[in-house]
Write a protein that binds this DNA or RNA. Structure first.
Length: 420
RNA sequence: GCGGGCGUCGCCAAGAGGUUAAGGCAGUGGCUUGUGGCGCCACUAUUCGGGGGUUCGAGUCCCCUCGCUCGCCCCA
């Protein structure tokens, strides 16, 4: 019988990995708690139309990366490729905006059918933040600050915040026209990918990695110049707020977000230590999305962090000891049926008192059990052999002190001593 | 969807056509031990992701296939 494997682009997080994930999750949770941001959990499965309408039919994500299938009721379903559309859908569906602006976060798996590579899986995990009902430029800055501080809290270095403004949808439409017109005049000099994008998603040509295309773009009309005065002023105010928060940033006029719903502020936090998939956090403003999904016109801003990339960085940046699972306080060793019968309740009682207890269930030779006790890093060993069992006592050994004297104690006395 | 690299025991890893596929970790059994951390002995891949082919002979060469990995695209 051939053993089965996990699907391509999906991974098992083994016990050696999960402490890193838990640490990152704990830091994020605490950051959100202190910022007054509430968690929302939405289904992993949504009607396909949500993403088609929300993210944009022309995007790669919707066009060729979604896990879409018909369920038994012939409904077209899609495993969520990102979180924002679902959050917005839920907020509209439950009328949350009637209670005022919403400060929300979410986390969990997302699915995109892409070729896996470093920092990119088909099932990947994001933590995201959404501020709904906030138009003030300060909300852009605060959203960014929370991401920035979260990353700082994890001790990550080598991060850079890149910022741009895509302007209002009018600005963007106007600029798109200008850019396409200009690029049409230079079509022959564009790389094949960019020629393709000219008709599908021309703004993306701006962040092409092709050096010839980049050189050509030096002469192209800029997005910044196409911004209406109000848009420009808005962008200024976001920058001022960030400066006041002493968060360093670089304006990247080529920064364009891939999903259709973004407007005005767009940003990315990148790491120099990640290889090709350098973006740890990406986000921006999406004032049109709530309306587009059938809700009341509502300004909004948000971002998403890539957990896999974050964990990669956190793992590299930190002292491994900080990520170790807590060591057991007590390791219970027993041999012989009488002794084994006593060990089980002893472990349970110790746990009930708050101790971390590992119970050896192997019935192996004492030597083996001690070896495991030492290896697991437990502080104490409780040993019950046949003699102890018949006397109703337990031997307490200090595993950190090989010369130490063993104590023969009643179970009660042993527990009392460990708690002291 | 396109390109590069790789695929030997649970993990790490020698092995560059020729009789028996190193070693380390982990595991199991045993010796030693004041019931343990050290040390020592033994056992643990008829087989090199899978399938074809070349050859007197292939883990080592060729082809196909599967998988992993890195990059393009795209994105977090």
């Amino acid at each position: 019988m051939e053993p089965l494997q996990s699907l391509r682009g999906t991974v098992d997080l083994l016990p050696a990995q999960t402490p890193f994930w838990q640490r990152v999750e704990a830091v994020a949770r605490d950051q959100f708690r202190r910022a007054g941001i509430a968690e929302i959990r939405t289904p992993l499965l949504e009607v396909t139309e949500l993403f088609a309408r929300g993210i944009g039919e022309a995007t790669d994500v919707v066009g060729k990366e979604m896990y879409t299938f018909l369920d038994r009721g012939e409904r077209s379903c899609t495993l969520r490729p990102e979180g924002t559309a679902s959050v917005v859908r839920a907020v509209i569906q439950h009328g949350l905006l009637a209670q005022g602006p919403q400060r929300l976060w979410y986390g969990g798996p997302m699915f995109r059918y892409e070729r896996p590579q470093a920092g990119r899986q088909r099932q990947f995990h994001q933590i995201g933040l959404e501020f709904l009902g906030f138009a003030d430029p300060r909300s852009d800055a605060e959203a960014i600050a929370i991401a920035w501080d979260l990353l700082a809290e994890l001790g990550l270095g080598g991060l850079a915040l890149e910022l741009n403004s895509l302007g209002s949808s009018d600005d963007r439409l106007r600029y798109r026209g200008e850019l396409v017109q200009w690029l049409e005049g230079h079509r022959q000099q564009l790389d094949p990918d960019s020629q393709q994008r000219l008709s599908t998603n021309p703004l993306r040509i701006l962040d092409s990695k092709n050096p010839h295309t980049q050189a050509l773009l030096a002469g192209a009309p800029t997005l910044a110049a196409a911004l209406a005065p109000e848009s420009r002023e808005r962008f200024e105010r976001v920058q001022q707020a960030l400066s006041r928060l002493e968060i360093p940033f670089v304006i990247n006029p080529r920064l364009v977000r891939g999903l259709d719903y973004y407007s005005h502020t767009a940003f990315e936090i990148t790491s120099s230590q990640l290889g090709a998939q350098a973006t740890v956090c990406g986000g921006g403003r999406y004032d049109g999305l709530v309306g587009q999904l059938g809700g009341p016109a509502t300004p909004a801003v948000g971002w998403a962090l890539g957990m896999e990339r974050l964990v990669l960085l956190a793992q590299a940046a930190s002292d491994p000891a900080a990520f170790q699972a807590a060591l057991p306080d007590l390791y219970v060793i027993s041999r012989g049926s009488e002794a084994e019968a006593l060990a089980l309740p002893l472990a349970r009682r110790a746990r009930a008192l708050g101790l971390a207890v590992e119970l050896d269930l192997t019935a192996a030779a004492f030597g083996k059990q001690f070896k495991r006790a030492d290896r697991c890093g437990a502080r104490w060993a409780a040993v019950i052999g046949e003699a102890e069992a018949s006397e109703g006592v337990v031997v307490l050994k200090d595993l950190r002190d090989p010369q130490g004297v063993d104590l023969r104690l009643s179970p009660e006395a042993l527990l009392a001593r460990l708690l002291a």
